[in-house]
Design a protein around this nucleic acid. Structure first.
Lengths: 209, 209, 209, 209
DNA sequence: TATGAATGAGGGTTCATTCAT
DNA sequence: GATGAATGAACCCTCATTCAT
């Protein structure tokens, strides 16, 4: 059950799972506050509720903590996305609903997502690839929903672009919150972004022919 | 002329200006490659073409280098944005043109923007506020262009939202390039994003009434 | 029966004896490969076939393992030396035979001897004295054989010197093997060293009067 | 001039030479007292008369200190051996003189030699090879002297054996001093070993025909 | 003004040892 | 008797910063 890309000296898997969850929880808070590099392993251990020695029974390197954090985030995001998306539904409503779920999710997990986005580059190349793949999977889920929702054919490129836009707008709610929540609540943000996606500025601007 | 938020022991302002430009150029390359924290002051000095002792004649702390980098980026971005936006023009074309200029700019300065985007959080609170204010100024410029371009009234909230979307989509071209340039060239990216902004999916989906 | 200079929490002496033999066997291999300091107690436990907790039921400190190894080596060396030396025989043949036995022994136990030779200094002062005493005993055995073998009186100093030379030449076969076995087999080594001891270079050099 | 197998960040070669000599001197004393592994880098720095930071300006890893120590020992040994051996002299006296010089040398440098012999195995494989080569060179010097000294032909194997014996007996004076200097002074040790080498036990034993 | 040697606080990591189960 | 999770002192090494030249 625990991520086995990061080996542990502890044999009891349930314990590994439990301790690593303590670790992730403590680490997210610290990484958010001061960033990965300025957080010491001793602080992580303390925030996790055990000693530095114990910390290293469950990971090999400090970087492993960051990897576990990222992995756990994507795991949870994916689970929630899958739970809220119905692949059989094919009307535009399912897209609207998926966007709502995803933005809601980004709101719930803003700390984690913020941390992940600012610190992935601190991972090793391999770990980055692993995390990036998860991200690709997520975007692919959005692409699927988009394809299912349109009634008229739409180019692959546009599907990609829209999926990426939604993806980034979700993150934006997390890491540009300092400016956005002067103007929006989560609900109004979701609402306006959805409107904009569906209609653009078609009514507000007049283009030259 | 040189940024005086970062004091220097050297009196000759022209020299300070020159040396700091060397510094910024060297530092951007290093920060891009390995990030701010993993770059040492010695490496910055070497890449700048002078000794570690000299480096510290022109800054007080390592963080100052990052600050100078960020400041220089915004300075240059702002200059180019101002040069390419005509506040008197009020048709939708000016918005289209502003978007094109801005995306082009993000493409030209992708290294710098990537660095800034990933490392601002390493600045002190004060320095972050300073940089954030520059960012707000930039978004405000986009907002102005939007207001000038629409023919029908549009809510303030929507203006903010659209400006932020454009802003983030510009950055996205920089830091999600690894996925986007499988599908898009800069021109096609600009083109599709513009279309999407103006019309959304109005033709592709049929909404319930 | 088990060495009682190293106390154990386990009461069953036969078990202590058995476990410690497992330990010694595993430890010699590890010490030879990576040295005492670079071998961890966990590795010793694993190589011995039991857990780290169990290891510490049979010793007090890591150093005890080294002590047990050294003690066991001398024990076995002494037993074999005693078995092969006949104190009643008094011709030079008995010396020749003793040398042969001893060199053969050093060849058989080269791993163990190498380890002991390189790691004694890691023992505490007390333990070193204990081990050194065993070494003195061994040299004394050689001295006895020498005394029994000569037909003309020989100074005590020379007895000591020769005994030490033989002792060191035996070790030399173990730890300079990398150079010696380009030229010698064990048998030819024994043969030539014996010849040299008995006749020196008397025929090959001409001394000034 | 300073050993360039161990790179230093300091540019001034004379300074590197000076600081490394301080290091070697301090390190030998410590290594002799407590061994390489039990000596900390901070202790080495302190004994060398500078800070831990400065220490690491002149080496890369702790192991480098040990390497420098070993290298310096062989350098000095070689210089002194070369100075005292006259390759043109071809009588047995030159062998006797070479032995005397070498044993005297081992006496002078006993601390260093002891350290080297107990700690070489802590070096990396490469560094060990380098040091071993120096050792081979030294033995080769002894072999040359032997060849020059004999009046009757002597087998290559015997040359090798005698050279190794002398080599090891020299070391023995260093690391078995605790037992030898109950019986010998340096001079009497040299004298008896020389006699033994030249004549063996030919007068003291009677062999079966 | 420029240099680079010196400093030492502090960080990541290891591992002998303990002790509750 | 056996196990292995937990502990934390201690080690190696880095690097921002200073300052004498």
């Amino acid at each position: 059950m625990p991520n086995n890309q990061v080996p542990s000296s502890i044999k009891d898997e349930a314990l590994v799972w439990k301790r690593r969850n303590q670790m992730i929880k403590g680490a997210v808070a610290l990484f958010k506050e001061k960033g990965f590099h300025k957080t010491t392993t001793r602080e992580i251990a303390k925030a996790s509720g055990f000693s530095i020695g114990t910390l290293y029974e469950y990971i090999r390197k400090k970087e492993d903590v960051l990897f576990l954090v990222c992995d756990s985030i994507y795991q949870r995001v994916k689970e929630r996305m899958e739970a809220s998306i119905d692949p059989n539904q094919t009307s535009v409503e399912s897209l609207v609903e998926a966007i709502r779920s995803y933005f809601q999710l980004m709101d719930d997990m803003q700390d984690e997502v913020l941390v992940m986005y600012q610190e992935v580059k601190s991972l090793s190349k391999d770990a980055q690839d692993y995390v990036l793949q998860k991200e690709r999977d997520m975007v692919a889920m959005l692409e699927q929903v988009i394809v299912n929702s349109v009634t008229e054919p739409i180019s692959e490129a546009d599907v990609t672009l829209i999926a990426n836009n939604i993806f980034v707008q979700g993150q934006m709610w997390g890491f540009r919150r300092w400016i956005l929540n002067r103007t929006f609540t989560l609900d109004s943000y979701i609402d306006r972004q959805t409107q904009l996606l569906l209609h653009g500025l078609s009514k507000e601007v007049k283009e030259l022919s």
